[in-house]
Design a binder for these strands. Structure first.
Lengths: 186, 186
DNA sequence: CCCTCCATACCAACCGGTCTGTTTTTAAAT
DNA sequence: ATTTAAAAACAGACCGGTTGGTATGGAGGG
């Protein structure tokens, strides 16, 4: 794997763990075993450019992974539960959730950097669209689809936040149980 | 108002806007028009002690405010919609939501400082309990109450995050429309 | 020879925090 | 009521360390 991709991968993980401001350049350099010159060769505009590259990479990883899940399950409900189950397994194993959430980035940088905010916006939109497509396939109306997909995006994101706060995967488990009720209520 | 309370108020707002690491001590000092000596007189353990004081203050403000709303409305549904409406008004006016969310703090500091994480946990628990009490009063069963109140906490928190990301209050509006469906599905 | 890639020394700015000294307030003693 | 001592509150210089970022130079392959 080439250096640039390795930097992005490692930095992505670090940013997700500790937030943008929580990670220093030196920490990234050490984790990647590279020098400052190398980093600034691949990312001439510095840390923020790296962050945006990480967000794009993360966005693609999430999208492809979710699409794979949503292809392999017959209904929105089944796919969603499988996806949440994966998040739970990952949390119980690693004590954190990488490769899905970027709330920390948004809340830190959303008001400071438009490019960063846009990248996060794009990711949320993609996620919600995956829900929407499956809901449409399930036969829901356009309006209902918009409502449910947004509710799913928001509640799962919120549940992840609650898991990190409460140091347990219970919130995600509970959401996974509640979402079917929402789907059946339409 | 005494100096210490003023520091807490101003710092709380700054922390919510820019996150913990995004605000420097000097910025706080300038905003409060005080000196470093004064700050360290009131908070001998420095920045983190100040943050925790802010979280406690915020927790109390949220709790009392929500309890007031939930007393003045007959049902969970009405109270929740009124509360979300307030959030929307505030967002459309100020472009941000202060006095409710602390996701930024959790995602930055949750894994670094146990006291901070505990303070945030306490706040989430309090919020959820306000929902729960009203739901019980509405006649929901204990189990159902736990599910719904968690769903409400998570989805509203997530919706706030989406509002900040997308720079529109639409997500909160949508959640406000969807939540009644959830309540009626039990 | 040039261009990609990397390494390192260096920089000003800022970080949170400490220290010392001064002002202001409080309260007890006369 | 006045004096006085102690304590609370505040001001600002100073500190080591770190931050993100730059400039320069070298290695290596086409």
């Amino acid at each position: 794997m080439d250096t640039k991709s390795r930097i992005i991968d490692i930095a992505t993980s670090l940013f997700q763990k500790k937030g943008y401001l929580g990670v220093g350049l030196n920490e990234i350099l050490k984790a990647c075993n590279i020098s400052k010159g190398s980093l600034y060769h691949h990312f001439p505009n510095g840390k923020e450019e790296l962050l945006i590259a990480c967000l794009h990479s993360l966005n693609e990883a999430i999208t492809t992974h979710m699409e794979e899940i949503f292809q392999n399950y017959p209904s929105t409900q089944a796919a969603t539960q499988a996806m949440i189950e994966e998040l739970i397994v990952q949390y119980d194993r690693d004590g954190m959730i990488t490769g899905y959430t970027f709330s920390s980035i948004v809340s830190e940088m959303g008001s400071l950097s438009e490019p960063v905010r846009n990248a996060c916006d794009q990711s949320f939109t993609n996620i919600q669209e995956i829900y929407s497509n499956k809901l449409i396939a399930d036969g829901f109306s356009k309006e209902t689809t918009d409502s449910i997909s947004l509710m799913m995006t928001a509640s799962i994101e919120g549940a992840i936040m609650l898991c990190l706060t409460k140091k347990t995967s219970d919130p995600l488990k509970m959401i996974s149980q509640v979402l079917p009720n929402l789907l059946n209520s339409y």
